[in-house]
């Protein structure tokens, strides 16, 4: 028994639609003969067979789209008898189209992902003893955390860091401040707005004032501005 499977006909072909059988059951086929036409989504392509045989059962109906590797038909090997050959369940016609047969095993080489998954950074849980940085090194503190701690008058050295490399993050500062203010820990205060502590310097070419705006005046707000206003009021 020869299985005639839908081959992959291009680097980007995962499935194909059977357009035509070029032979019918009982026909003799020769190695290299085109036996079906398949639409690969790019074009209709003749599909050849790689062994001599006799077309036996055509399992996939015209018009069906099936994954690469699907058995499209079975063929009898030279000398094999139709009477004793095993029969396969044919795929129903499209319309009441049943799930396509599974792709034959071993279609693609089994290789793991090319890159190992990144190692999760070690996280120090809040409340754990704060490791002193090695001499000569600063504790990593995110700029946002440092600014927030300054606003809150919080000693950054007393805040445990949970960020990458044990860095003190904004959330660490917020949590530390909440622990300090509320003896019975209530709901944590809402996170502070993600505001930059100060405007970072950004070199910007001096721009000429647009010429048309000879009389700078109040202009109707843009849609986006109106939108922002509305949501601020809610």
């Amino acid at each position: 028994m020869i299985e005639f499977k839908l081959p992959s006909l291009g680097a980007d072909m995962d499935e194909g639609k059977l357009l035509e059988w070029m032979v019918k059951p009982g026909d003799l086929v020769k190695r290299g003969q085109a036996v079906a036409v398949v639409d690969t989504a790019k074009a209709a392509v003749d599909v050849e067979i790689w062994q001599d045989g006799t077309m036996f059962e055509q399992l996939v109906p015209i018009g069906a789209t099936v994954p690469v590797g699907t058995v499209l038909a079975t063929l009898l090997e030279p000398g094999e008898s139709a009477a004793t050959a095993p029969r396969r369940a044919a795929m129903p016609l499209p319309g009441g189209q049943a799930p396509a047969p599974a792709v034959a095993a071993g279609m693609a080489p089994a290789i793991g992902p090319a890159v190992a998954p990144p190692v999760a950074p070690t996280v120090t849980p809040t409340g754990a003893p704060i490791a002193a940085p090695p001499p000569g090194q600063r504790r990593p503190v995110s700029p946002a955390a440092r600014a927030r701690a300054q606003e809150l008058g919080l000693d950054i050295d007393g805040v445990a860091g949970t960020g990458p490399h044990g860095a003190v993050t904004l959330a660490d500062v917020v949590l530390a401040a909440a622990v300090r203010t509320a003896a019975p820990v209530a709901d944590p205060p809402p996170p502070p707005p993600l505001r930059r502590p100060h405007r970072p310097w950004c070199p910007r070419p001096r721009r000429l004032r647009p010429r048309r705006r000879r009389h700078p005046r109040w202009r109707p707000p843009t849609a986006r501005w109106r939108c922002a206003r509305r949501s601020a009021r809610q």
Binding site: K5, P7, S8, L9, A11, V68, G69, M107, A108, P109
Partner: peptide, 8 residues
Amino acid sequence: YGEGKIRG
């Protein structure tokens, strides 16, 4: 190639 053994 059709069997997916050779790619590209």
